[in-house]
């Protein structure tokens, strides 16, 4: 009986040791990027607006909240800077500077669909002189509606092929557009 008690005691000790091991190793850091928010800062002569695509709770759950891009017709000289961030964290994490710093490994692709009279061209280049398009020039035509699709690629294999630059898609979003 004595043996039994002592072996049971050692078992309990072992067990508690394991629990201790369990609790002290708990902090394992992961690097999980969640892009929740994309902002388009559009400025021009007498125009200064921010259009936001926001999915604060991530994929699923509540649907993303998307601003309509309303622009005056027949306007030149509009410039857009895109801001990418994770607002599910507090404080929010802004990825824009990091993307700009590694501009050779990133590419923004802009596409207009559905007949909106909007022309977008890149206003910047990466460090090798290849397209980057974090800052873009916008020119509007007559009153119309449509969609603006923005994609961010990383490690694109062919930056000049805007239809299929290769690499990986980090985000792929669409804003409704109204030229008035």
């Amino acid at each position: 009986m004595k043996i039994k008690v002592s072996s049971f005691a050692s078992l309990v000790l072992l067990l508690s040791g394991m629990f201790a091991l369990g609790s002290c190793e708990k902090h394992d850091h992961t690097e999980q990027e969640n892009i929740t928010t994309i902002k388009l800062l559009v400025t021009g002569p007498g125009f200064d607006e921010v259009f936001t695509w926001n999915d604060a709770d991530g994929p699923g759950g509540n649907a993303p909240v998307i601003d309509e891009i309303a622009l005056p017709a027949s306007t030149t000289g509009l410039q857009c800077a895109i801001v990418v961030s994770d607002e599910s964290q507090s404080p929010a994490v802004d990825y824009t500077n990091e993307i700009t710093a590694e501009n050779a490994d990133h590419l923004f692709i802009w596409n207009i669909t559905g007949g909106a009279s909007l022309t977008i061209s890149g206003a910047d280049q990466d460090k090798y002189g290849k397209p980057f398009s974090q800052v873009t020039n916008w020119v509007t035509g007559q009153a119309s509606t449509g969609f603006l699709n923005v994609k961010l690629y990383h490690e694109p294999t062919d930056k000049t092929n805007s239809a299929n630059p290769g690499g990986e898609v980090d985000f792929d979003i669409a804003f409704p557009v109204k030229i008035q």
Partner: peptide, 15 residues
């Protein structure tokens, strides 16, 4: 496969 190739990219995405 992560977007950033910086120093933070040594970490796992899921653990």
């Amino acid at each position: 496969v992560v977007r950033s190739s910086g120093s933070a990219s040594m970490r796992p995405q899921l653990s």
